[in-house]
Amino acid sequence: MAIEVRIPTILRTYTDGQKTVEGSGATLDALFKDLESRHPGIRERLVDDSGELRRFVNVYLNDEDVRFLGGIATELGDGDSVTILPAVAGGMR
């Protein structure tokens, strides 16, 4: 099951500079574990210690924010496209 994953600039150090990599998994969680097997270190940047998506990492399945789908448990299918984008955020404190 091939899923295209778009990698943001800040995480391309884990993918040898590649903008897009392929992965597989029936859920987002499985996909991230699959990515980790070939790109060690990347998973920790995406999920926290409890296994949930990090608050300031946005992940999209096709055109939708996975937070409005099933979060880390979102189901994936063959041919889906996953886009990872760090939030652009900050504040005075």
Binding site: D63, D65, R67, T83, L85, A89, G91, M92, R93
Partner: peptide, 13 residues
């Protein structure tokens, strides 16, 4: 917010 900013997630995509 007067103390925080964040691009909307869909706008960001």
């Amino acid at each position: 917010s007067p103390t925080f900013y964040e691009f909307d997630s869909m706008d960001l995509l």
